[in-house]
């Protein structure tokens, strides 16, 4: 067993993890998309408040995302738009992380 185990340990510990860039991108895209979708809808469900100028305001801080995500607002429709943006950015970032990681692993080994 000692021999078999040391062989197994060698197999386990000599290998370096490779990331699947596409899967990594998909996961990060879904995660980021969902985070924005849920965060937006949470504020929508919670409701807003009337500001001193008499305007009904929902999620003034999250709304700042519209600086980057054109068309985004804190509403149900906005949450779907936000999901799309989040998914796109998450996917690109995740895939890029996976790709860079794999390149570095290839370079180092």
């Amino acid at each position: 067993m000692a021999k078999a185990n040391s062989k197994d340990e060698e197999k386990l510990f000599s290998g370096i993890l490779r990331l699947n860039a596409k899967v990594m991108g998909l996961i990060m895209g879904l995660l980021l998309g969902l985070v924005i979708f849920i965060a937006t809808n949470w504020l929508v469900i919670k409701g807003g408040h009337i500001d001193p100028s008499g305007k009904y305001v929902v999620g003034p801080h999250l709304r700042l995302l519209s600086q980057y995500f054109i068309g985004y607002r804190v509403s149900f429709l906005g949450s779907i738009i936000g999901f799309g943006y989040g998914f796109a950015i998450g996917t690109l970032s995740g895939a890029l992380i996976g790709w860079i990681y794999n390149k570095i692993v290839d370079f180092r080994n």
Binding site: F13, L17, L96, I97, G98, I100, Y101, I104, V105, R108
Partner: peptide
């Protein structure tokens, strides 16, 4: 094993 330097850089 995950390559620490690789993941950190990425």
């Amino acid at each position: 094993r995950m390559d620490k330097l690789g993941f950190a850089t990425a």
